[in-house]
Design a protein around this nucleic acid. Structure first.
Lengths: 148, 148
DNA sequence: CGCGGAACGTTAGCCGGTAAATGATTAGCC
DNA sequence: GGCTAATCATTTACCGGCTAACGTTCCGCG
């Protein structure tokens, strides 16, 4: 059992759980803050645009938007000029969450990286970036087997 | 949007995707290799034991075991002496996957950490361990609000 | 011996994520 | 102008994960 894969996975799990706990106190679920973040910057984005911004598939955004609409955070409206498009608009409630959620997220990051020195933190980010790149290469370069 | 939370999350996602791609070529899905790993060491474990070993809830193991049984990787049998217990036994197919899957996993880890020097890798593991600990503390220390 | 509580696995229902099929609308080309 | 092809969102169906409710089986105590 490779060490890094294991540790990284376990770490991600507990970090996710911590984020989930924080978000729940504001009535949000795990990915919903990211969706909101896109709209905070570009209110009226389409599901496809949001999906692209979040590196997620469109159905994921559609379903999440449905729940968030029911929760009163969003509004769905078809685009007037191109009725294939749907635009997601923030409600006042959704807009009001921006400050608290952003603060909460900063606080969580601080807590979680509290035991690291500034140097450690820089090195960690750099190493993670390299891992991210390598993993992307594995993903993008290997799926098609040329000998097949 | 905090840097570490963001980068760590994105990295995890691409790493997961890479692992998924590898496993799929062997007919497995994302968490199933972990379940198998437990049985490779302790064949005949109960769902509860497996769940504890994987840091996952029992229902997750139960459902996964159901699918893996249907896929011919596992066998379910009630314990003779205590019929509350259910024991999961590897089939020959499930047992035969051990070598290839472990090799595949080692290879993936190598590929993914290829751009890191040995020092970088050590520092990364150490930093991740600290993060893991801090996040666990956030999770275990904050959920109960004493003022409530 | 019996009865209540503890220890299990299973089921049901939700959430985020994916791929694949469906449906509606626009754009483009003849 | 009309037919085809591209572009969107949505639906369906699956998977891993969780919590909560349920049903069995055992254990210990009176």
């Amino acid at each position: 059992m490779p060490e890094f894969l294991d540790l990284h996975g376990r770490t991600n799990k507990v970090v996710r759980a911590a984020a989930e706990a924080v978000l729940r106190r504001h009535g949000l679920r795990l990915g919903q803050d990211h969706l909101l973040a896109v709209l905070w910057e570009h209110d009226g984005s389409t599901p496809g645009e949001v999906a692209a911004a979040l590196n997620v598939t469109t159905p994921t955004v559609v379903k999440m938007a449905t729940r968030m609409t029911a929760a009163g955070l969003l509004t769905r409206r078809r685009d007037d000029r191109d009725s294939r498009l749907v635009r997601l608009w923030l409600t006042e409630t959704g807009r009001a969450l921006r400050e608290p959620i952003e603060a909460e997220r900063r606080l969580l990051e601080e807590k979680i990286t509290a035991d690291l020195t500034e140097t450690e933190r820089r090195h960690l980010m750099s190493a993670l970036a390299k891992i991210h790149r390598s993993a992307s290469d594995v993903l993008g370069g290997a799926p098609i087997d040329p000998a097949d």
